[in-house]
Design a binder for these strands. Structure first.
Lengths: 340, 340
DNA sequence: TTGTACGCGTTATCAT
DNA sequence: ATGATAACGCGTACAA
């Protein structure tokens, strides 16, 4: 018992060759085929409920209509939202998406890349972890189309879609300063990833621009994995600075969620004691007792550009596009003006 | 230029047949192959950085090591968390996951199923939308291994992993009653999906058991899509019942999030005016001004059973397992006792 | 150890 | 103007 009907079955039933069946069902050589024959083929195909084996087709055509998506963790709302947009966008062009989570682990990441390449995905959309330059360069050498997502390596010429993290951070901190804050802290990841460096750079630049002397104790770095204890320690340390900080920028939605949970259980009041801003939106921010100002990434655009750049790169290997998008600061109560 | 090195390249370079290369690299017929030859093959394979074309292998072996996951919306935290668990669990057995979101749309759903079947996934994990019985029956007829996730059809004998939604709902409402609530509302989806019916049934049964006469105006049904206006209308209606309800059970995390946002902006106080319980956990619930009691689904277990049942069904087509798991009620402040 | 057919769909080439 | 033959993509499995 074969699993499903194949071209041969249709050919046999319709009394023609598989060649003809293939041509008809793919609308090729339309003018050379007798219309009645064509109709008969179409009818039997429908009757047998035929649909092509994509494995065989892919093997022959070297085209699988599959896109590989590698994020750091699909369960993170940021990734999940992006995945959904990419899925929809890919579907518009008949592509199916396969995915994997790297957990920022270079070993897992490499394995995922290899798996997807061996499955002959037509292209990859990748959030590369720290230290993955070699792997990315390999992809380039193998002429495998891909787009870096959310992050990129300035030293490597690739497609990428990312945020202007410097500006996003700069504007967020600037907003805090405009609201009268003077001692502004930041909790972000201890990582050499460029986009995270940019967030840090924007933070410090905004302070400098307003002649606020940056103090090292205001900047706390935490592990990029699931470093809940690290984040909680950072919050405690920031809250025991003397004089105490009056504002803080969280470098990611995870950091924000974890920190706000802790802050919620302490006697610190937002925004009177402490103004807070988060990177990325989650529902939680709107439902915090003092709805939280946040840096909104244009997820739709990011996803759309990722697919667009990827498709272009698949058509033309020389088409390499770096896309930088701007964030939007959504101001809510958590950064309300100081009562001086 | 061929994309990547294939068996033939190794065979040529090592001066042996492709057959031998295949055997060696797959550790077959180990005892019949000259160890030196084997080593030479392994060396050249490594040297050329060979890895097998999974398309070709799958075509021949009828095994792709791919699992298809269809949820209603991958960006929903419930689905995203489950997806992550399933991804990890599948990876333990070398399976790659491809995914798709149905948006509870039967057309989209059917298309996703077909796409995945044509890609010769070894099995499917599916959250079926309402009205998909025919499609599910087709899968059974085609002997395609699958497991229904989160939902199932009592009328069809399939693998499934689901929650005891009746008990979950019953216990939640019972908890409200124990906390002194007398007029308990529920907002849930207007759907004939069994698991949602069960939630409703549990709610009503709990009222009856405590001799509370159920009133129709306490139960509000909203669209299963993205029905924000419907949910908001339901909240308003529930809050204008007279005498006003003193508790409400939200039938999903989406309903909870949307409702709580609205409630947050009104003058209703949780839990003194209104006790609330949500289905499924999201961070938001912990950060609501009165942390929200919720029905916790054992996501890990659900995901693990899904893969386990699927793998068993793949080995033995006769192995059909229905798994029902119990929810846990996580009590927080939002259901605090009434001050009488 | 090796040749070769096979899985299935595509397509260049050949035949009426 | 219509249609069929056969090679091919790549890895596997069985006969030789």
């Amino acid at each position: 018992m074969r699993a499903s009907v194949c071209l041969k079955d249709i050919a046999a039933k319709a009394g023609v060759s598989t060649t003809l069946v293939s041509y008809v069902l793919n609308n090729q050589k339309v003018d050379r085929i007798n219309k009645l024959t064509a109709q008969k083929i179409r009818d039997t195909a429908k009757q047998l409920n035929y649909s092509a084996n994509q494995l065989a087709r892919g093997l022959k055509t070297n085209k699988t209509f599959t896109i590989g998506l590698i994020v750091s963790d699909i369960s993170n709302p940021f990734s999940a939202n992006l995945a959904r947009i990419i899925e929809d966008e890919a579907e518009k062009y008949q592509y199916t998406t396969i995915f994997g989570s790297s957990d920022e682990d270079i070993g897992k990441f490499e394995k995922l890349v290899n798996t997807m390449v061996n499955r002959k995905v037509d292209g990859l959309i990748i959030s590369p972890p720290s230290g993955s330059e070699t792997i990315i360069n390999n992809l380039l050498q193998q002429h495998i189309p891909f787009v870096l997502l959310d992050r990129y390596f300035p030293s490597i010429k690739t497609n990428y879609v990312a945020l202007d993290n410097y500006a996003a951070s700069f504007n967020a901190v600037n907003h805090l300063i405009s609201a009268g804050r003077k001692r502004i802290g930041m909790i972000t990841y201890d990582s050499d990833l460029f986009h995270l460096q940019e967030r840090k750079r924007g933070y410090i630049a905004a302070l400098e621009k307003s002649n606020i002397a940056f103090e090292k104790k205001w900047l706390k770095l935490v592990g990029i994995g699931h470093d809940r204890p690290g984040i909680e320690k950072a919050v405690h340390k920031l809250l025991s600075t003397d004089p105490r900080i009056d504002a803080v920028l969280f470098g990611s939605n995870k950091i924000a969620t974890c920190s706000l949970k802790l802050i919620n259980s302490l006697s610190v009041k937002v925004p009177s004691d402490l103004a807070v801003i988060s990177f990325d939106h989650t529902e939680m921010l709107d439902l915090f007792y003092s709805p939280v100002t946040y840096v909104e990434q244009p997820l739709e655009e990011i996803g759309q550009f990722a697919i667009k750049n990827l498709l272009e790169n698949m058509k033309d290997p020389a088409a390499i596009t770096g896309t930088i998008l701007k964030a939007k600061l959504i101001v809510q109560q958590s950064t309300g003006g100081l009562i001086l």
